[in-house]
Simulated scan of single mutants.
Amino acid sequence: MPDAVALAPQLQAYLQHVASERRLAPRTVAIYTEGLQQLQAMAAQAGHEVLALQPPQIRRFVAALHAKGRHGRSIALWLSCWRGFFKWAAWQGWVERNPVEGIRAPKTSKPLPKALGVDAAVQLAAFVNAAADPWEEARDAAMTELLYSSGLRVSELANLDVQAGSGLGWLDLQAGLVHVTGKGGKRRSVPVGAPAKAALQRWLALRASRFGVQWAEPALFVGARGARITPQMVWLRLRQRSQQAGLPVAVHPHVLRHSFASHVLQSSGDLRAVQELLGHANISTTQIYTRLDFQHLAQAYEQAHPRARKKP
């Protein structure tokens, strides 16, 4: 990261545009700021003005970042930022062409998703915090069980309602299903396992006990003030719960989604079924779990086969 310097007025204007008109999230604006600072610093080092850059200079910048060990995904994110800036600059009449168009980041291998082992996942799902507030404990246990039982995204969990309505998802406890709206507005129905169903029943019995008779919040999971729980709160509660359960790593919701997919695939071998359960539009997205499954088998082989390793 270059030293923090004042950005050129055109770069500042673009950041204001993406923040106020495109309404990008503050975190995204911060990433764009870092990317534009990097672009300005490299342009200055090469003796160029940012608006005078051409494709050869952009390619050299990408090569230099890659040589310094910058991850391909970070470079791709910055290229997207630069591409957006020059496209907007062309609309303003500041440049004639977009020098970033057609330039791609170096390819990098996709990291394997982080998943818990079966024993660790069951340990977390079965954990009971006897010292916690019973209302919060029932809610957190139900959220944990449902994330692992059904492989939901954290946004899908937070958007669940108690019953069908105009929301993005709902719980059908009698049928043992959750109906959710995933990425791209794609709807799917996912089974709820028996332990998760029991945890949800305990939560529903306590859910309304803190609020008056006029309380009519449709959300399945709510905070202490009675409003729908946020994805950020789910992350925090699950992280705390995994530490309290004695797991060696802090767990976030997507780890349980990965664990769900990996464990179902290990047991069934049915990649298409896992694709449907996860709501992946393309099976290539699901195929990464076959690599995770193979890694699991390879570890089992290393530990069990008498000729897998040389004896000391």
Rank of each mutant, 00 (worst) to 15 (best):
W203A: 02
L177I: 08
Q12E: 15
S74T: 15
H17I: 02
T144F: 00
A132C: 10
H258Y: 03
R27F: 12
W135I: 04
P55W: 05
P9A: 10
I229Y: 00
L53Y: 04
A67N: 12
W235K: 05
G167F: 06
V234M: 01
V5C: 14
L236D: 11
R188D: 01
V5M: 14
P113L: 00
N159S: 13
K110T: 15
W88P: 03
R210S: 09
Q38L: 15
L157G: 07
S242V: 04
A216Q: 15
G223V: 08
G182M: 02
E34V: 13
A132P: 01
Q295T: 11
L15A: 04
D270T: 07
D161F: 00
I229S: 08
Y301G: 03
E136K: 13
S267Q: 14
A164K: 12
H258E: 09
P195C: 04
H263P: 05
V162G: 06
G165E: 06
W235L: 07
S80T: 15
R272E: 01
W88F: 06
S189M: 11
A105V: 03
A250H: 03
A298K: 13
V251R: 07
A105K: 01
G223P: 09
A196M: 10
Q174E: 15
Q240N: 13
Q10F: 06
P56V: 02
W94V: 09
H71S: 15
S74N: 06
G212P: 04
A142C: 09
G117E: 13
A196P: 01
R60F: 10
A208K: 08
T144Q: 02
W88L: 10
R237N: 08
R104H: 07
G35E: 00
Q54A: 14
P253Y: 03
L297S: 02
R291N: 15
L247W: 05
Q243L: 14
